[in-house]
Design a protein around this nucleic acid. Sequence first.
DNA 1: CCGTACCAACTGGTTAACCAGTTTGGCCAT
DNA 2: ATGGCCAAACTGGTTAACCAGTTGGTACGG
Lengths: 251, 251
Amino acid sequence: MIDNQKEHPTDRVIRSIQAMLHDGTISSGGKMPSERVLAESLGTTRGYVRIALQRLEHYGVITIYPQKGIYVSPIKPITLDAIINNILRFKEHDIASLIETRRPLEIESARLAALRCTPEDIERIVQAHENFKQAYNEGKPTLEEDHLFHLAIAKGTCNTVLESLITLITPEIITMNKDFKENYSVVVKHSLEEHRQIVLALQAKDPQRAMQAMDIHMENSRKRRIGNPVPQTAHTSNTSEETYETDTHAR
Amino acid sequence: MIDNQKEHPTDRVIRSIQAMLHDGTISSGGKMPSERVLAESLGTTRGYVRIALQRLEHYGVITIYPQKGIYVSPIKPITLDAIINNILRFKEHDIASLIETRRPLEIESARLAALRCTPEDIERIVQAHENFKQAYNEGKPTLEEDHLFHLAIAKGTCNTVLESLITLITPEIITMNKDFKENYSVVVKHSLEEHRQIVLALQAKDPQRAMQAMDIHMENSRKRRIGNPVPQTAHTSNTSEETYETDTHAR
DNA sequence: CCGTACCAACTGGTTAACCAGTTTGGCCAT
DNA sequence: ATGGCCAAACTGGTTAACCAGTTGGTACGG
């Protein structure tokens, strides 16, 4: 409300809609004012209102019916408020949170893939593994082959949401890891072996083993990253990161 | 490529960019044609190109520099291709996948909250729990109070990504569960007790116990849902789903 | 008094024109 | 031949006008 002048018009619109939701000007399940009315009452133009509404629709807050109107989802204002707050803060992803969140997703991905993947999925995963190996043997960067291997597994889960979420955080992790120099000799070799264990578990259709192998891989990846040089991205999360158990992260 | 006439212009643009990436017309880390050039060469207008580019930027595929140009992220085409495929299929979320993916996220959320949540976080969580209880006692619907409880926990994780992802799937789950009649008497009472166990674990700062309590809650929620009448959403996932083995998450 | 047909106002969807920085290439002075 | 400068072309950002389908009220005919 204070620095309204500086932030992007689209965010201002979203914040205003949030406020209108809060003070009851618009209510759950009800109809919203038209784009034109919103634009005028918020002192902006329709274009910005339009983009803001599309974002809100993308996150399930509203539904837009062409030539009819805009309706708020039948979800309580308090819940919508939390969702909108999340929309506004969506860009604040730090590398520590990304890696931390990736772990349970990948473990579940391994479990489901072991349960459900078809021979074709296995083939794709093995192929991705081979590509990784080849890049390693040729002394080329392997960061992306690594992630493609994981994406291939996610594809075998038959779970559209899980695949979406893993794919969603992948580019962010790749970008933030680009700064780290990859040790082609030792580190990647370990990664390869861990991948091999995952492949074996998947081929054996053994979910428990797949989870375990993936968990080990995630944990070692984290350690390997911490051992690497730190880039200048400001978020230089303390390299003396505690092992998970003692992690109290007191604020 | 076939039904290009029917799908939304924005999706067509994204698909075309994907193709250009594939055949080398544009390359990783390189500069893309300007919005105008893209619009003309794709036989559409700038507005659609604009929206498509914003979506691609949102997912980390490109970066837009005002008054300068559009640059492709320095990520290999093959990886970008996978990400773009995901963007195009983003809407195909089914309820089974949502519930399935929610489990590991919530378990990790409980673990991290137990490790890191502040007294203020605890207070918010307890308050959310009380609100749930009150709604139950008053015989009112509790679906959203339930989710607000989980969002309060996610807020206590100090993990922006995890909080984002949980918030992201929440409205979809709420909407898809709206059709189910909630049994105010027995079912919700069980849910309340499970929540109480989670609260106790968090107050005790015991991550293992929190994980376990959350896992039980997720599993029971799934069972309770399956026991309820099935709506007409087609995706009537097999109820004979394998039982989840105990979490070997312990490390 | 009721039902129907029509028209005006309003909806979101779409397009094109305009704006202010940035880049670039050529011209001119040195 | 070279260095600097200026204007034209081009960039994404923004605005406003136009389009087609929907709705709701009203006037007219029964």
